[in-house]
Simulated scan of single mutants.
Amino acid sequence: MIAFLGMGLLGSNFTRALLAKGNQVNVWNRTAARATALAADGAKPFENAADAVTGAEYVHIVVKDDAAVDAVLEQARAGFKPGTIIIDHTTTSTEGAIQRTKYWAEQGFAYLHAPVFMGPQNALESTGFMLVSGDQRLIQAVEVHLATMTGKLLNFGTEPGKAASMKLIGNNFLVAFTAGIADTLSLSRSLDVPFDDVISLFENWNPAGMVKGRIQRMASGSYSQPSWELNMARKDTGLFIKATEAAGMPQIIIPTIAKEMDKWIEKGHGADDWTIIGHDSIVNPKKK
């Protein structure tokens, strides 16, 4: 039997998918109505988290943050049986994942952090990506179970917090990527270019293939053989800003990037590759 704690968009669709595969699933949610709604799909709802996990081999949880994970698991622990495996899909801090792994081991239970790059539809269809790291014997023991829930299970090795770190890195990219799209669409509106034409551009010119090479170049710290000089990149950035300001269409991140470019140009790096703007944070970080 499986217990699932947290019936948000991901949790509810994970539950529906598990039920469709013939599993018995007990469910709990802080707002009880969300758990009760899953009864129509065959889940067994409970008002108390400890009752929901009683007898469960796997206890899955996906809630808001570190504090919520800790609070809900403490509520549920009275129902854990010997051998219960806790599988946490919540996006949390790396430190939190490490601390929970240690804490629950001391309590006699296995805890595995398994965050996901999956939307609600992915959870329902068992597609997308699930990340794990830590005790490889534990991962091997739950691999078949987790593989039924996702399109691809990514194992990042023996560090307990590595999966949490990789999830945060991925989400950081998604946030920056989305802000970049917003700025791009702001420019397209400023230039009276229909969004359909923007879509057509990216259907034919796909910059996704540049990501790996760009990361490698920026991580190397070598900028002396530019593919796009900083001076020229700054010139183009000025055109973006001029066009959007003239149209009254503010941008989110481009003005900040322009200021960082100016800083490096003032240092004498205008003829270097424009990726030098990330040097201090990537190659030469000033850690406390």
Score class of each variant (00 low, 15 high):
I2F: 09
A3K: 06
F4Y: 07
R16A: 01
V27K: 00
T31P: 06
A37N: 06
A40G: 11
A40Y: 05
P45V: 08
A49L: 00
E57G: 04
V62K: 00
V62A: 00
D66M: 10
A71Y: 04
A71R: 03
Q75V: 00
Q75W: 00
F80K: 02
G83K: 05
T84N: 14
I85F: 01
G96I: 06
H113G: 13
A114Y: 06
N122L: 00
G128M: 10
F129R: 14
F129Y: 15
L131N: 07
Q136G: 14
I139P: 08
A141Y: 07
A141Q: 12
V142S: 02
V142E: 01
V142I: 07
V144P: 07
A147N: 10
K152E: 11
G157L: 09
E159M: 12
P160M: 11
G170R: 10
G180R: 11
L187A: 07
L187K: 03
S190G: 08
P194N: 02
V198W: 02
E203K: 07
A219E: 14
S222C: 08
L239G: 07
F240C: 06
A243H: 02
E245G: 14
M249N: 13
M249L: 10
P250S: 04
I253N: 07
P255Y: 07
A258F: 13
K259P: 03
K263H: 11
W264T: 03
E266C: 06
K267Y: 05
K267P: 05
H279K: 15
